[in-house]
Amino acid sequence: MRRPNVQVIVASEYPEARYFLQEMVEPEGGITVSQAPDVPKALTLVKNLKPDVAIIDCHLPYGASTYNLPLSRTGGLDIAQIITQEAPGTKVVLLNNLDTVISTDRALPREDGDTYTMKNLENDMPLVIRDLRPSMKVPNTLVFADIEAKPQELQVQTRTSATDKTIFFGALAIVLGWFLIISMISATIGAAISGVGVGAVILGIVGKLTNPLWRRLLGKRLWR
């Protein structure tokens, strides 16, 4: 049976954040994602598409004409409440701290001082969503979600676990192998030298012990 198509809208001022959110939900399959950069466009999408899920940044601006006003970025909660009232079938996820993980130059910061670009966002998902909490007033409809930058060590681990670990353990195996090979060659040579030495010592001792006997058998003159 064919899976029904799920309509999702993602609303954030930041294109990188919208891209990240789209990348996050699209791999599920059977999901169509539409993007909105501000409140009016998000409302239009909600009215036209009647989405199943709306993922909204709480600092969503009211409109392009008010971008220069500091208080224009307070529309997320308002539109989330409107959607829960006007489109009760839509589940709303309100992301409450996208602004703290996205710098003002609209690029995602990295701990090494560099920034994520659209290209490397394809491989590195620097954000994680955690703490999904349903709203107390409208259960199962409005969900508050914390979003935060993925810890650097986790990013390194996820990026390098398959490659760097293989290289590290491979190099370690090579060094260990060569150590054993050299040890075995040295042991063989050492054993041979030691054997010759033992033989010489035994021969010397035997010679020393049998000295009077040889003298008697061979005679004083011959022995001299």
Binding site: P40, Y62, G63, S65, T66, L69, P70, L71, S72
Partner: peptide
């Protein structure tokens, strides 16, 4: 002041 700014921005939206 915040409230006043929001009101003004609302009117700006209407005008636009």
């Amino acid at each position: 002041d915040d409230t006043r700014r929001v009101l003004v921005s609302e009117r700006l939206l209407l005008l636009n």
